[in-house]
Nucleic acid binder design. Structure first.
Lengths: 316, 316
DNA sequence: TGGTAACATAACATCACGTTATGAAGCTTG
DNA sequence: CAAGCTTCATAACGTGATGTTATGTTACCA
């Protein structure tokens, strides 16, 4: 005797609402539909489920026992509906996120716990990579969202790129670097410090070479290369070394007093940090929501940075 | 987003059986049916439930979450099916049982715990009454089964009567009555003892008058009347009183040494104890099962009584 | 004893679900 | 790496349960 779970739901609706008519519109159906379904069920079961010839329909004991199961089904169904609604609202799901190491560690990783405080059911699967690799992975759908610096004009056709922060680098140093104490810094001052070079595959590597060339430094000493942001920061704070890092990364690190920037204007690359997505891939709500969140965060980060600059607070 | 509980069952079946095909025949359906239902669900939900282009179909996280609810629904459904099966097998339900007080208390009440040991989910709603009242209540469907003494030829048309024990009365007395010590009892011996009269509405009342008339006792002293079997037994065991009771009742009470019978043959009424039911009423399985049980019990009781008589064990 | 409210019945449309047959695409295996 | 098997998807079709509105019964209440 296989029963239709909807019939059990129906029984519990009738029982719990005290009548066939009430149960019917609790389920959003017309009364005759429910009436007939009950009849068919009684025929199948071979037993009366309600005492007939009683006007506020009185459930049989058998019916009450089945209604208990119906309630369980209704509950499970409701929670399934909630799950689906969460998914559709982007409050549940997975976001496969990729980005360049320095930005991910230096900026994005601070945003994620904030996001997950609001949306704990969204799981972030993060990975690292540079723009070409990220594009590939967006293409073969192993990534939902990439965060990387790109020249907006060179974004491929199949991609959608939303710039969130102007590309701008600074010369970074440890928080207690002795150059920070000087009122003005001359190029000759920085020429002889050792440099930390980003990984050669990082766009920062080219940036650094360009920056140093621009300010006339042709010959420089690389004391360390290939490390992550954490390694770089550790070394900067325990040596005289300098390096080139994105403005936003240094800005964030200032709060923990782990990085500082020299007040030397350097040229900025023709790139913007932005959110890169595949146009072809179906837009999952969780990815949508996370993207909006990150864009908003960067908007307010931009505003904060601008405000700091206006107030000349950079070296407060 | 209201979901069909059957779809959730379906998801859990697919997930738990490791594939669409396996899930399909776990549900007893053809594979294309399940395949299409999944497609429709995905369209409704707006999200993939399985990773496509993978041959042992891999469920999405969303799907897994929904499958959890599906399992709950399957479990509730299964237990509902069990409930119905129990009902249909007569292992669950209600039996509204009525009968004459002496038989109910003296014989049937001993059978009920035995029945319920096997079928604890069957509830017995017992009540007392005499044949006319019982017939009425069978007619207006406030009773499923009556157990009472009837003349099989006078059973009405709408009833079905199954005799289970020959009508036969004995003169009953307390277990230590001094008449029991006498090797032979003469009518004059019993004439002067006080008598306990059954309620006048009881057939036993007429029986007693008939018996005493048959054995030539025209004048007798009624010391107590109107009491239940318990009251009767108590009085019998604390006095010299005598009364007329069904053989079977005295036989059962012997085990507890609370009643005995005088070895005087008396005429038996043209009645049989039997199970009376309405032909019109739908046959509920629990009533069927209980009726069969009681009939069997009486069959073996009859056999036991016969055996005792053959072995002359009556006054062991 | 009406009148009202609740349930049952009738008649009909439709759509999801079941079926079989068949196609397409992964995975496996020599 | 191609063959073959397995697994899933699609197509075409019948049907039955479910929904609807309209209307009939019948229990309850005043």
């Amino acid at each position: 005797m296989k029963l239709d779970p909807r019939h059990l739901e129906l029984l519990s609706a009738i029982v719990d609402n005290g009548g066939l008519t009430e149960g019917a519109d609790a389920l959003g159906k017309a009364q005759p539909s429910v009436s007939r379904t009950v009849s068919m069920l009684e025929a199948r079961v071979g037993a009366p489920l309600f005492e007939k010839s009683r006007r506020p329909l009185v459930p049989t004991e058998l019916c009450l026992a089945l209604a208990v199961e119906g309630r369980k089904i209704l509950a499970a169904n409701k929670s399934a509906s909630t799950i689906v609604a969460s998914y559709q609202g982007g409050r549940r799901g997975v976001v496969r996120l990729g980005g360049t190491p320095v930005f991910m560690d230096g900026v994005i990783s601070a945003m994620i716990p904030q996001f997950q405080a609001s949306f704990p059911e969204v799981r972030i699967e993060q990975s690292y990579g540079y723009s070409n690799e990220l594009r590939d992975r967006l293409d073969n759908n192993t990534l939902d969202l990439a965060i990387c610096p790109l020249n907006p004009t060179t974004v491929g056709d199949g991609f959608e790129f939303v710039p969130v922060l102007q590309g701008r680098n600074v010369i970074a140093c440890g928080y207690a670097h002795r150059l920070l104490a000087k009122p003005s810094i001359r190029l000759s001052d920085i020429a002889n410090y050792p440099w930390i070079a980003p990984p050669t595959s990082s766009p920062l590597y080219q940036d650094m070479r360009q920056v140093l060339a621009d300010i006339g430094i042709r010959d420089f000493k690389v004391s360390f290369s290939g490390g992550s942001l954490t390694a770089t920061i550790n070394i900067l704070n325990n040596s005289d070394a300098l390096t080139v890092l994105p403005y936003s990364v240094v800005f964030m690190a200032r709060r923990q007093k782990t990085l500082a920037a020299l007040s030397i204007r350097i040229g900025h690359p023709e790139r913007s940090l932005g959110l890169l997505r595949s146009k072809a891939a179906p837009k999952r709500p969780s990815v949508e929501r996370f993207s909006r969140f990150v864009a908003n965060e960067f908007a307010s980060l931009s505003a904060t940075i601008t405000k700091h600059e206006q107030n000349n607070l950079w070296r407060d």
